[in-house]
Amino acid sequence: MRPTTPAALGALSRWGVLAAAAALTAADLALKALAEHQLTGGPGPQLLGVLELRPAYNPGVAFSLGAALPA
């Protein structure tokens, strides 16, 4: 049976957004872990045709603006 009241529809859409956010967060974390595992400790950069992948870390905030600040 489908909910027909606006409150019930709003609750369902909130749960849908929450589920989508949780799924995207899990996918992001898993892909980051996989990329770090594949790109570190190897003989050199990974070559994919015209793309060359190397791990890089950002010690600061956006564009390393906070790199000189204390932790």
Results as ranks from 00 to 15, higher is better:
Ala67Pro: 01
Ser64Gln: 12
Leu29Trp: 08
Ala56His: 15
Thr25Val: 09
Leu48Gly: 02
Ala67Phe: 07
Val17Glu: 09
Gly42Ile: 09
Val17Asp: 06
Pro59Tyr: 15
Pro59Val: 11
Gly42Leu: 13
Gln38Val: 13
Leu18Val: 04
Leu47Thr: 15
Pro45Trp: 09
Ala35His: 07
Ala7Asp: 11
Leu47Glu: 13
Ala11Asn: 05
Asn58Pro: 02
Asn58Val: 12
Ala20Gln: 01
Asp28Asn: 13
Ala22Pro: 00
Thr40Leu: 12
Gly44Phe: 12
Asp28Ala: 12
Arg54Asn: 05
Ala71Leu: 13
Phe63Glu: 00
Pro55Gly: 15
Val50Asn: 08
Ala8Met: 07
Gly42Met: 03
Ala26Lys: 02
Gln46Val: 15
Ala62Pro: 00
Pro45Ser: 09
Ala19Glu: 00
Asn58Tyr: 13
Ser64Arg: 08
Leu12Ile: 03
Ala30Pro: 00
Ala56Lys: 05
Val50Phe: 13
Ala68Lys: 10
Ala23Gly: 00
Thr40Gly: 02
Pro70Ser: 14
Thr4Pro: 02
Ala11Val: 06
Ala30Cys: 07
Val17Ile: 13
Thr25Lys: 05
Pro59Ile: 04
Pro70Gln: 03
Ala62Lys: 10
Ala56Met: 04
Arg2Asp: 03
Asn58His: 14
Leu24His: 04
Ala23Trp: 01
Leu53Ser: 01
Met1Lys: 03
Pro55Ile: 04
Pro70Lys: 03
Ala20Phe: 08
Met1Leu: 13
Leu65Ser: 10
Ala35Gly: 05
Ala7Trp: 08
Ala35Lys: 10
Thr4Ser: 15
Glu52Phe: 11
Thr5Ser: 15
Thr25His: 09
Glu52Ser: 12
Ser13Leu: 04
Met1Gln: 09
Thr40Glu: 14
Ala11His: 06
Leu9Thr: 02
Leu34Ser: 11
Gly42Tyr: 07
Ala62Arg: 05
Ala68Met: 05
Leu29Lys: 07
Leu53His: 05
